[in-house]
Design a protein around this nucleic acid. Structure first.
Lengths: 244, 244
DNA sequence: TCCACACGTTGATCCAGATCAATATAAATA
DNA sequence: TATTTATATTGATCTGGATCAACGTGTGGA
């Protein structure tokens, strides 16, 4: 058990996003209870699904490399991209309520994840109040994120929504100690458009507009933020009442 | 302790929405641990706030009578109505993550709530796995509800969003064993419009249109659903591509 | 009961962003 | 490498729903 704990600590100590991650927050004694069930750096190919809507909850996944999208499909067949996820993010929390995944998680590019078997975690939940509150906090954050997105969808115009997304990606890069003046839009325009409730053409035009204003500089999927303050202003602009 | 448990059971047995409610799911021994801290049927006046965004989490509230709205305000001062809540619904779950309320809950009309002090509940969480999973399930439902709303906002036009809301209210009335062919829009048009991401004028027009099609019949705030199937069709209609 | 004011509805006009169309660029396959 | 196919951009046009304006209607306080 000590050997396992050490193995996990080593794995985490080499992981650039350990400070954001669930297993990292367990102490060695706690980790030893997960035995050797956690699998580190399982590689995932672009397009692969970690889990699908309706699947029974078997594990949570901590992203160590690459990026993912989650999507739900409703009774009418309408698909909605629910979020984009990067290293350090935990996937599968939406299944904690019904023990069934409520969305499908797909790799946007080649990626790697740490797999945390849920029945092991669940056993720890009763014994470790710290783990329970950690998970509750993460669910609370997921709720807050959804609510921020709802606010953007309801109150902001296209420019405001796109600016909000760029700032969101930038902030999350900062949390991973990466250059927050650059963000990477690795997902397809169609996914971005679906997520933001607009059309691919509008995405192109708004990005072009922000570039022509000197707020952004684009090179393929890489977007450099040249004027953070201006981007914040655009992000705050309400729907149908531009403020400049 | 036994007397307290009996008092609670009596209170719950007279409550028409007990089957939806959190304290109801505790057995007498568990309830006795909450001592006499739960206050039943605290009356709340229209316009009163149960809690405000930023407040420390002190209690959860189970609605026994009346209805509430929750709203968040972002850094730019934009307000978004996040949801409407009816008897049997639990308010305050959004605070479980950060121990701080993430939204403001306001009574839409005169109402009554059962107050569940959180530090009592929290003590029970470690001892009662059933309570923990009940709360997790409720948080999971809150997540799913937000995601359904995001889907509606991103993929549906005004008619689809309003039809979706009417069906949602109808379904929730069915859960309370009330006539699900009638729903009551007791909130102000402005709140409804904000929640649905549209203008009050559009709400009026869409309701008028649905009435002229014989799908609804309106008498003030009371809306009778005459053609459920048609309403479902309208609810499934996507944005910008009407399907009739 | 009446009055004042907040709220809801209806009509006319306008515009952000969808839609349609054509082209350019990147990725996949041979 | 060339060739095909998927994805992204740019232009022209159209429209759902916002905006502006005017008018009903309901409610709470004196």
């Amino acid at each position: 058990m000590v050997a396992t704990a050490r193995r996990i600590q080593q794995a985490c100590s080499h992981c650039s996003v350990a400070h954001l991650c669930l297993p990292y927050s367990l102490d060695p004694v706690e980790i030893s209870r997960l035995e050797s069930q956690i699998s580190f750096d399982r590689s995932v190919t672009a397009g692969d699904q970690l889990f699908a809507q309706g699947d029974q909850l078997k594990a949570l996944y901590a992203i160590s490399k690459g990026s993912f999208k989650t999507a739900v499909v409703d009774a009418n067949g309408l698909e909605q991209i629910m979020g984009f996820y990067f290293p350090g993010d935990l996937l599968g929390l939406d299944a904690l309520g019904e023990q069934t995944h409520q969305c499908t998680a797909t790799a946007i590019e080649n990626a790697a994840v740490c797999r945390l078997p849920f029945h092991q975690l669940e056993g720890l939940l009763t014994q470790l109040p710290s783990l329970r509150s950690r998970l509750m906090r993460l669910m609370g954050q997921a709720l807050t994120d959804d609510e921020q997105q709802l606010l953007a969808m309801g109150q902001k115009n296209s420019e405001g929504r796109l600016a909000t997304l760029l700032l969101n990606f930038s902030r999350r890069r900062a949390m991973r100690n990466l250059d927050s003046t650059t963000v990477y839009l690795n997902m397809k325009r169609a996914d971005l458009a679906n997520y933001l409730g607009m059309r691919v053409e509008t995405i192109s035009r708004v990005l072009g507009h922000l570039q022509s204003q000197g707020i952004l500089d684009r090179k393929r999927k890489e977007v450099k933020i040249l004027d953070l303050a201006a981007l914040h202003t655009r992000a705050g602009s309400t729907a149908w009442v531009a403020d400049d």
